[in-house]
Design a protein around this nucleic acid. Structure first.
Lengths: 351, 351
DNA sequence: GTGCTCCGTGGGATCGATTGCACAGCACGG
DNA sequence: CCGTGCTGTGCAATCGATCCCACGGAGCAC
């Protein structure tokens, strides 16, 4: 047809076709109030016949609910984050909420712009893996009555609830495993102190050492960004020392790639010369040569619980007068678990 | 404060504070029509003072533009897809469009529900990595005047434009590389014939063989799902044969994990006993032992071009009378490139 | 028969922005 | 001095759904 533009069917037209008023049609289709069975049928068949699709924009304007949730995340490449994103999206969708995806690439300026934008879109909730540089803006979002869930990271002064990995416990688990195998010279490659996971994993590392009566050796600790090159460089330096470690705890999977590359380059055999634990699961670790022992931080559960917590807050919002104060920011910790594979073994020459 | 609910500032209030009418305030803030410099300043300062944030829902109702784009994708775990998603999101955001993320997990029922939902949200565009089971619904979307871009896959009868990887060429490139090294017994592990990339990569495989005067040996061809277990099982079977291949083309990175696991388990050394090419880059392939030769299908460009093409269609929509017919579905192919690393070498005993 | 409740339905205001139309004021040319 | 055109502004309709309020009629008790 010529000029047959994209004409959307409105509620009015459905109502007219069914011979009832707009109000009644609305009641039938949103199923709120009681309607006679006959009217119901008439409206439903009219809607179907005309191919009616409700306009969520109009509906959102009136009800002040967008059915949108903002997900502000630093990246998707990291193994945990894309898994978390998938789970989150699915759980939220099951309850009628859609995800507005915002990847910040850890850039505070982008993060800030996204937060403003999400405010403009009147999202019903916000899940954020934050850089920590925009807590003021996040507070604005929260103050606007929008529930906020901090995921993986809870910057100082951040409003809302938090769903966090048990980073400290996980690291302790991993390092104690190495100590139990008999290692005494355990190296640490981990993230910056400015990030929650960096700080907490280091704390777990030292805590485990302490239970064995050891103190961290500064020469065996490398702290820097969670990147492949950093891991490679750190591993190079550690293994080139006069007295190289017999075991290595690597706090992140990206860095671990760098480590593995460096080890191949140096000809260091795992686990014969070096036992290796990575604090983060990745789909290929079970297939590595050798399969890598890891700490699984429960990415699936993190996504699941973050979605659940947000939905809880959204649900309880219309009821009570003051929105967020009811729980004063709940903190949920997701347990970590050690998965022992073949990259860890007893040291060859116990000291 | 008690009872200080989340009161949003409206345009009316800004207008009143600035001493002008709603229309004028709107004109200033959306910068459409000419306004005197003085009024402009007054409105802008009032807006800033009150912390005004435009309500995109209301705006969307009036303008019939949601500034939302639906991204329907089978999963995020696959290396290419999360990279593509990141790039897409960034490019669309730069032009003022936000991404509504929908992960189908290749489930046609979920896909269908998402398409309906996106229609209800009145998205301004749709980018879809489709299952191929809902072309009718996608046509509805397109018929509603919403530009559609098919990504990676273009099911038969799909409306809209397509941005595709050069799967056939890429596979041919990879296999020719193996043939050039002297291999004559080249195995194929690839996807189902029902998926574009499965079909095209197989076509490239046979085409390359043909240039060397060879025909595909059914005993050396495994076709099945793009999964780790399938790759493992296929590799097991292929290498257990009386006359195992000297080279292997693996059409997908997930299957390649399985292959690598199986090879480790069987004690097959790469590349000494088997040369291996994977048709898909993954961040860890350069760090594998040995680093894996791959065909990079240009994920970054795929995202980039899909966003660009969609934006082009969105921009050209209000101008011309009939929405999509102007280009009758443009097909954009993104070039592939071979990255030679250490997993491929000449066969030990050329036949 | 009167008064009451309850049910199903319709009328119409409303959410917050955009935009066509009209009009006031001013400048300028004839 | 008047007509014409341009600029800046305001009025009010509009987008499409939701939902408060009111109303007619049925059923029932006294």
């Amino acid at each position: 047809m010529i000029g047959g533009g994209p004409v959307a069917v409105t509620l009015d037209e459905v109502a007219e076709a069914a011979g009832v008023s707009k109000s009644t049609a609305s009641r039938v289709l949103s199923g709120s109030s009681r309607v006679s069975a006959q009217t119901k049928r008439a409206v439903q068949s009219a809607a179907e016949r005309l191919g009616y699709r409700p306009n969520r924009i109009a509906s959102g304007l009136r009800t002040r609910r967008s059915n949108l949730v903002g997900l502000v995340i630093t990246n998707l490449v990291n193994a945990s984050f894309h898994r978390i994103t998938e789970v989150l999206q699915q759980r939220l969708d099951e309850r009628g909420y859609q995800v507005l995806l915002c990847v910040t690439d850890s850039d505070p300026a982008r993060e800030r712009r996204y937060l403003d934008m999400l405010l403009d879109h009147r999202v019903d909730g916000l899940i954020i893996v934050g850089t920590g540089d925009n807590t003021a803006t996040v507070r604005e979002v929260s103050a606007a009555g929008i529930p906020v869930v901090n995921l993986m990271r809870t910057p100082d002064g951040a409003p809302g609830d938090s769903v966090m990995a048990a980073d400290r416990d996980g690291a302790e688990l991993a390092v104690r495993h190495l100590l139990d195998l008999g290692h005494r010279s355990v190296a640490f490659i981990g993230g910056p102190a400015g990030v929650d996971s960096g700080r907490d994993r280091y704390a777990g590392f030292t805590a485990a050492l302490a239970t064995a009566g050891l103190e961290p050796d500064p020469a065996l600790c490398a702290r820097g960004p969670f990147t492949v090159p950093f891991g490679a460089e750190a591993a190079m330096r550690l293994m080139a020392a006069d007295n190289p470690p017999t075991a290595l705890y690597s706090a992140n999977h990206e860095a671990t790639f760098g480590v593995l590359g460096a080890l191949v380059q140096l000809g260091v055999r795992v686990p014969e010369q070096l036992s290796l634990v990575c604090h983060e699961e990745a789909p290929w670790f079970p297939y590595w040569h050798p399969p890598i022992t890891v700490v699984d931080n429960g990415a699936r559960d993190l996504g699941e619980l973050a979605a659940e917590q947000l939905l809880r807050r959204i649900d309880s919002r219309p009821d009570n007068g003051d929105p967020g104060e009811g729980g004063v920011g709940r903190l949920i910790r997701v347990g970590s678990r050690l998965v022992v594979r073949d990259s860890t073994t007893a040291p060859r020459r116990p000291e």
